[in-house]
């Protein structure tokens, strides 16, 4: 399964991911990482049976773990296919087809929610 790990600024300097891996023996396969002095955000794959352990280990150290199983949903009646969402998505979920229809690759979504704020027509959501 895919998970996102959010690390706040007060603990971003600490080796909490390494400690959690050592503690649980879970093979966290990090596919994306963004870390600076203000925050950290990692996206990683993890075996399903190891999720409970790693979630507990990371949460205990102050990180926030989100399971990436509810990708962004587009309301096709509200969407006007302007493409406002395209440039704010950190993982290129949105793009244009040749006929300027909006293409949505849900499997790439890391549920950050930036596109929801951007959409002028309230056409994007994360709730199931």
């Amino acid at each position: 399964m895919k998970i996102r790990i959010d690390i706040s600024s007060d603990i971003v300097g600490k080796p909490i991911v390494a400690e959690s891996i050592v503690e649980t023996g879970a093979l966290l396969n990090i596919s994306q990482a963004h870390l600076d002095s203000t925050r950290g955000e990692l996206v990683a794959d993890i075996e399903n049976e190891k999720y409970t352990d790693i979630n507990k280990a990371l949460t205990k150290r102050g990180a926030k773990v989100t399971v990436l199983d509810t990708p962004i949903i587009r309301d096709e009646d509200e969407c006007i296919e302007c493409g406002a969402c395209i440039s704010v998505c950190p993982v290129d979920v949105f793009s244009f087809e040749a006929d300027w229809s909006l293409k949505v690759e849900q499997e790439k979504c890391i549920q950050c929610g930036t596109c929801i704020q951007m959409c002028p027509h309230n056409a994007l959501s994360l709730e199931r």
Binding site: I80, E81, C82, C85, V88, W100, S101
Partner: peptide, 9 residues
């Protein structure tokens, strides 16, 4: 990256 706010379609 660029975003259009108008809909070309």
């Amino acid at each position: 990256p660029t975003s259009s706010l108008s809909s070309f379609k």
